[in-house]
Simulated scan of single mutants.
Amino acid sequence: MCAHILVAEDNEMQADLIRRLLVREGHTTVVVHDGRAAIDEAKSRRPDLVVLDLMLPGAEPDRVFSRRQLLHHTRGHDRASTERAIDVHIMNVRKKVEPDPRRPVRLVTVFGVGYKLVGGHHVP
Rank of each mutant, 00 (worst) to 15 (best):
E83V: 01
A85W: 07
G76I: 06
R102H: 14
E9G: 01
T28W: 07
P124W: 03
A15P: 04
L49C: 09
A38V: 01
D100M: 08
R94C: 11
A8P: 00
V51H: 00
E12A: 15
N92S: 13
L56E: 03
Q14H: 13
R36Y: 06
A80M: 09
A8Y: 00
I90Y: 05
G76D: 05
V123W: 02
V50N: 05
S81R: 12
V7S: 10
D34W: 01
A38H: 01
V51T: 00
P101H: 12
Y115Q: 08
D78W: 09
P124A: 14
P47K: 00
G119W: 12
T82V: 08
P104D: 04
T29E: 08
L49G: 02
S81Q: 11
V118R: 12
G114L: 01
A15Q: 01
A80Q: 13
V118F: 03
G35H: 00
A37S: 12
G76M: 10
V51M: 02
T74F: 14
M55N: 14
N11A: 09
V108F: 06
A42S: 10
L117K: 01
F65A: 01
D87I: 12
P104T: 07
L49E: 06
H122L: 14
D48C: 02
G112P: 04
V7D: 08
